[in-house]
């Protein structure tokens, strides 16, 4: 069994998800190969030294993939798959993973399974557990090999394995045909003074808030708590709160002492951004909401009655 893991990195540091996938692949006894795409050979070598526990590492070092380029990296990944013939290709459930896995599956004529949280060996290949329908259901799939997967962040607790990092083998696929170019890298704008990443307490509202006319209720509770007000992706997409206040996969990852949330279902993309919070209290009228599997405390009480009641309680208790 051989696994090829697409290794993401940022600012010269290998992403945690590479080690999570490594541990998942090791749990099924796989020989683990890593693939790095970066701008030059020096950067590839520096990243390679971080990959302790991998059995082999290959790299594509080319200015075209100096920053993540969806088309060029797909060409590089497909070339690595053709060279190394892995039984299972693993990408994280990230922007790159979404770009790459399904496209690779079609181009390499392999089956693909997304949102994977666990893998086990079975007689014909692998048995995979996935999340589906926004995390409300799990799916068990007999996965024939060879296959392509996207693995949910947190599928295994990241941790490096002992041993030396393997030497990096350079691959030189032809990337000249890419019709995609990276023009500018954009870093988060923190000029507003909002920094959810440093907040001790966060009150997050979800789609069930219903609209901006209900925002004063949420703002009053956030003020009573002395918490930062945050929103899930639908709240930001609807324009009810600015992007800087988004928690989740495409927003900010947070780890506050208190994460109070109302009307947030707990889709995997949101959990990825807040599941390490020290205390999670969830308010959601849907008792099947996946957030109740992660929260420490929960209530199905109507949020529009509870939010003012809690605000009043806090204000009277704090005075």
């Amino acid at each position: 069994m051989r696994a090829l893991i697409f290794v993401e990195h940022s600012n010269g540091v290998v992403s945690e998800n590479a080690f999570e996938m490594l541990l998942l692949a090791k749990s099924i006894g796989a020989e683990c190969h890593g693939l790095i795409c970066t701008g030059d050979a020096g950067a590839a070598q520096a990243l390679g030294t971080q990959l302790t526990g991998f059995d082999a590492v290959s790299a594509v070092a080319d200015p075209t993939v100096g920053h993540y380029n969806p088309e060029a990296v797909l060409i590089a990944l497909k070339a690595a798959v053709e060279t190394q013939a892995p039984d299972v290709v693993m990408t994280s459930y990230s922007t790159a993973g979404v770009d790459l896995a399904a496209g690779l599956a079609v181009r390499s004529e392999r089956p693909m399974l997304g949102y994977v949280t666990d893998l086990e060996l079975n007689s014909g290949g692998l048995s995979a557990t996935s999340q589906v329908y926004g995390g409300k259901l799990t799916a068990k799939t007999d996965l024939p090999l060879p296959a392509v997967t996207t693995v949910m962040p947190g599928a295994r607790k990241a941790g490096s394995l002992s041993g030396a990092a393997p030497a990096v083998t350079m691959l030189k696929p032809d990337l000249s045909g890419a019709r995609t170019r990276v023009r500018e890298i954009i870093t988060p704008d923190n000029s507003s003074g909002v920094n959810l990443g440093n907040a001790d307490m966060i009150f997050c509202v979800g789609r069930a808030l219903g609209g901006t006319e209900k925002l004063p209720l949420a703002e009053a509770l956030a003020a009573a708590l002395k918490a930062e007000l945050a929103g899930s992706r639908p709240v930001i997409d609807a324009g009810w709160l600015p992007k800087i206040r988004q928690v989740g996969k495409s927003g900010t990852k947070v780890k506050p002492k208190l994460y109070l949330m109302a009307g947030v279902s707990g889709a995997p993309e949101h959990l990825e951004g807040m599941e390490s919070s020290e205390l999670i209290i969830a308010i959601n009228s849907d008792e099947q909401a996946p957030i109740f599997r992660k929260a420490h405390y929960g209530t199905a009480c109507d949020m529009f009655q509870l939010i003012p009641a809690l605000t009043e309680r806090l204000n009277s208790g704090n005075s």
Partner: peptide, 29 residues
Amino acid sequence: EATTLNLPDTSGGAEMIEGDAKSVAARIH
């Protein structure tokens, strides 16, 4: 054809707080 769906195991999840808004607010406080 190779997939079976399941309702997730909810045991070990959140401790649910029951009651009306006032009593739930008091417990959260």
